[in-house]
Design a protein around this nucleic acid. Structure first.
Lengths: 220, 220, 220, 220
DNA sequence: AATGAATGAGGATTCATTCAT
DNA sequence: TATGAATGAATCCTCATTCAT
């Protein structure tokens, strides 16, 4: 390839997709979720992702610039999904207490999504190990915090005494960390630490973390 | 299961090593720790591990059967170390309360060892993703629980009301999970979730988990 | 691979080669010459280069960083060879006239090396098409001029009235250009433009170019 | 061999094209010229050629059988153009001397067309490297000689003493070779060998070559 | 105990080409 | 006439592993 800029390449993200193409893209993402969660990002084979839905690698490259782009796309989806779902959940809760319960309930549900948690771990590890790409991750990075803390949630956290943006993101990181860690333990030995126990521990820890800064109820 | 079993199954390591050889082996393990933590198991290059201490890959194969064996060996070390260190710590504590505090203190110290935590994650993920190798992992698996809960700890847990072996191991898994998750969050964004906060959250969660089953103080 | 610099990689050019390794390296270069000339740089398969001497691609990567590095190495060889051979040829010629004849004779000999000329073309085209790599090519670039004009030659050119370095390099470029072009024509249709004719045309053009600036004998 | 033969063998191009189609075809050829010259035949991407004029690859396949056919078509154009332009130029010149000057002038003009020369080189190299396709190239092959020597030119050459067809084609090959080589040198290092110098050298060499066989003025 | 040489499998990526629409 | 979707072959490169020395 010549050094001169390549006329295409940048346009890949624009995509003039039509129905059929968008369906394939969705299927690929679903498949990628499964494979990335199963094998880890580095170890996942694009071939597997594609053949999983009866396509070839070419179809993948038709929809994504490269392996990394598929990875990113998944997280963008997660974020979008969380924002939407959490927002609607919290909107329905009237009191602070109800909101906290709704959040915990939601997180417990997320914690039961094996794929989701493994992808979370994968994502964080990838970011840690590729510092140069952190900037590119920046958007997703903050977004992944907001993954757990959409606009509605900010309000909740604010009520919990976390005024600063940093405090909110800290809470978010801690919560998602505890969740990921507990679920990882569960996956590591499902018989020793079963789903129910994960939920129990989660509820406990989350309550603790969420109330950490609550002026009135300070525990520590 | 006997703690003294050699879980990695590599006979090579027991053999005919002399001073120089053992030193190299140690250096290699140290180096491997660094590289595995930095790049992850799958992505780590044996070349990097070796050249890191001025040797070539050959030296590695002279000391270990293959990549996996190096990985295992690291965990054997971790386990051994934990058992020793925790035992002496706990032995010095007279009351139950002191023991709990000693344990928490120890875990906070471990949580500050970036390498250690990343290796923990790597290990768990590897086990999850290689179910066929789980049997081989069996020893280490239990051992890694005991990594956090040596003989002295069993006693502690027993005092905490966890009679069954399963309950003990569950506690162990949960604790190490929470620790791993929190530290991962910290590494992901050190400015948002700093070391001090990790320690704070850890203390909170661990207290909660440890006392979970304490008959008297039952929270749930 | 992690972003952190890779401990190895840079060292690849240092090479702690021993006898056997150096022989392989030489064989690979010879083979690469053949294949690059035959198929062109872009179209040449590393597999072909390696299997040509009964080795595998791995051996290639053991000796060169990548495809481009093999390409460069060939030219470094060419340059070295030219410098040596031309120097000794010119050293033996006593008068200016004899030197010119020696040079022409040498160039005619080079022009009969099909491989050599095709590689020359390939090299120039590659440089033209990869402007960003031109800097890396810089050394070789000047060197390839000196490929035709070693130290002894400088003296000759000086005698021919080309004082400035630029004038010398210009002459070099023009000469090698004419040679490449004529030989290309020959290879394109060997029956129409045979070797003898190439030599004839070459002699004519070179004389013309070399004497271009000769104050006394100006022909045009 | 008849000049009017369609050398590329693609019937498609003769077919049912209407205004719009023919315009696209022309645009594609223009674009292909640019890209083939820039990246070389093997390395050029059909995608680039198409997107360069705001079309997709499909449009290319609608107008040409395949990549090679585009390549051929370009040369057919070149040949046609040369024949026409040179013929009119030479027709206007009354004496032999004037004809030679006109030819040289024309060639110098061609030599300033970077694209054209790079395509020439590309074409020759391709022919050399695909001997099996030489037969298909046959028409173009001779044609490319005639590219420089149309009917009017034959007459000129005849005047120059080149009776045999072979002698004429030889002259043609030599001339175009020298031109290609010099321009390549210029493109390789435009600062060392600038356009003016190329023209100077070209004039010199061409005069020499053209007069090579002139009975009266024999130089060799 | 350690090295340099070599292997070979495996995976990401590119791209000409086909085809339904 | 032209597009978007998909294919699949081809190729570079990496790296764990083996082996002679």
């Amino acid at each position: 390839m010549t050094d001169s800029k390549n006329a295409s390449g940048q346009l890949k993200t624009v995509f003039h997709k039509q129905k059929r193409g968008l369906i394939t893209r969705q299927e690929l993402l679903l498949s990628a979720r499964e494979i990335f969660a199963r094998d880890g990002f580095e170890n996942a084979r694009l071939e597997d992702i594609a053949s999983n839905i009866g396509k070839t690698r070419g179809a993948l490259y038709d929809n994504f610039e490269n392996k990394e782009a598929v990875f990113y796309a998944i997280f963008e989806q997660n974020i979008e999904r969380d924002k939407t779902e959490l927002a609607s959940l919290l909107a329905r809760a009237s009191t602070l207490e109800k909101r906290i319960q709704a959040l915990i309930k939601y997180l417990i549900r997320v914690s039961q999504d094996r794929e989701r948690v493994l992808l979370n771990l994968e994502f964080k590890l990838y970011a840690i190990r590729h510092p140069r790409k952190r900037q590119r991750f920046a958007d997703l990075h903050d977004a992944i915090c907001l993954e757990v803390f959409g606009p509605e949630l900010r309000q909740l956290l604010q009520q919990l005494g976390r005024q600063s943006s940093r405090a909110k993101r800290m809470g978010s990181l801690a919560i998602s960390g505890v969740m990921d860690g507990l679920v990882l333990g569960h996956l590591f030995d499902p018989e020793v630490l079963d789903s129910r126990e994960v939920a129990r521990h989660l509820k406990l820890c989350l309550s603790e973390i969420l109330q950490m800064n609550l002026p009135a109820k300070k525990t520590t």
